[in-house]
């Protein structure tokens, strides 16, 4: 097994708030290899975006991070703020959901990509702009020369997201974090953008962390999957194994809750209730209050344990197959 490009070990994030200490990420561990895509899946408030910001060093002031985050062997949490800033945009880059708010409306798209190249690769302004135009062509922006001279408001949503990807990839980062990169886009444009990320990953060996709520996207684009619930890892597995033999009741509920294109399902499997308040999380397994399989023992937090090779699940009931046999 090759050494991971990114490795998170027991990462926790805490914020002090008026109502007490909030811990949106509570002991997350995973690793991503070069040239592979790890998908982080979960619903609003599960901590997936906070995890991404912790890796990038973009958490707001006052956030306390525990655990370890290693990029290509280097412990990021031990770096000075200046050193971390130098890694951002160079060794690691991030693409956000809403490209309009990530681009500066006062500069042309080409200037903004060129700026990254000047800062991180030390290119002269003219060379940087020429390289930005090249990047536009690589992410298949039609008429790259002209588009590089456009301001963000003159570009469509899909085009803006291509500019963000061009900017993120301009410096050949070792790690790309894409946080819901296609959620704001139409389905035909989404398919183009995801295909582009896959292609560039294969070409340059970048490790990709793809944060999404869409299990269809995960099935098509991820090698490994981490399912998060209320700040913790519920299940972690190779994508094929997760879809073939999902083990955590939350994963099973999520798979059943998404309506399927081929139809034939009379009623969606809905997970009753809502996600817990993280200021007052339930004791033990945080999914237990919504879990149809819960036992008394679930008042204790189950460890993340291997059920199949490389397939870990945090559930006392796992593997659920024994339960099915008992019910049959």
């Amino acid at each position: 097994m090759s050494p991971p490009m990114l490795e998170l070990t027991q990462v926790s994030v805490e914020f002090p708030t008026d109502r007490g200490r909030l811990r949106p990420v509570d002991g997350i561990s995973f690793r991503v290899e070069a040239g592979k895509t790890l998908a982080v899946v979960g619903e609003s408030g599960c901590g997936k975006s906070v995890t991404a910001l912790a890796v990038m060093g973009l958490l707001p002031q006052g956030a306390e991070i525990g655990g370890g985050i290693r990029l290509d062997g280097e412990e990021l949490l031990a770096l000075t703020p200046d050193q971390r800033r130098a890694r951002r945009g160079g060794a690691m880059a991030m693409v956000f959901q809403e490209p309009m708010t990530s681009l500066n409306p006062a500069f042309t798209a080409g200037e903004q990509v060129a700026e990254a190249l000047r800062l991180h690769q030390g290119l002269a302004p003219d060379a940087a702009f020429a390289r930005a135009v090249e990047m536009f062509a690589r992410v298949r922006i039609p008429e790259p020369e002209r588009r590089a001279r456009n301001y963000p408001h003159q570009l469509s949503g899909g085009m803006r997201q291509r500019v963000m990807i061009a900017m993120a990839l301009a410096c050949r980062p070792r790690l790309l974090i894409a946080d819901e990169p296609t959620t704001a886009l139409d389905v035909t444009v989404q398919a183009q953008i995801l295909a582009l990320i896959d292609e560039l990953k294969t070409e340059s060996g970048t490790a990709v962390v793809l944060i999404t709520h869409d299990l269809g996207v995960v099935a098509d684009h991820a090698d490994e999957v981490v399912v998060m619930y209320a700040g913790r890892v519920a299940e972690r597995a190779p994508a094929a194994s997760l879809f073939a033999r999902p083990q955590h009741p939350y994963t099973i509920g999520l798979l059943g809750a998404a309506p399927r294109l081929e139809g034939g399902v009379a009623r969606l499997a809905s997970i009753e209730g809502t996600v817990p308040d993280l200021l007052h999380p339930p004791p033990g397994c945080r999914f237990a209050p919504r879990c149809p399989f819960a036992l008394d023992r679930c008042a204790q937090q189950p460890p993340l344990a291997a059920i199949l090779p490389g397939h870990d699940v945090a559930c006392w009931r796992a593997p659920l197959d024994t339960l099915l046999e008992a019910a049959a």
Partner: peptide
């Protein structure tokens, strides 16, 4: 969110 969406669809 998908789990809540399923509740409302039902």
């Amino acid at each position: 969110d998908v789990s809540v969406q399923a509740q409302v669809v039902n």
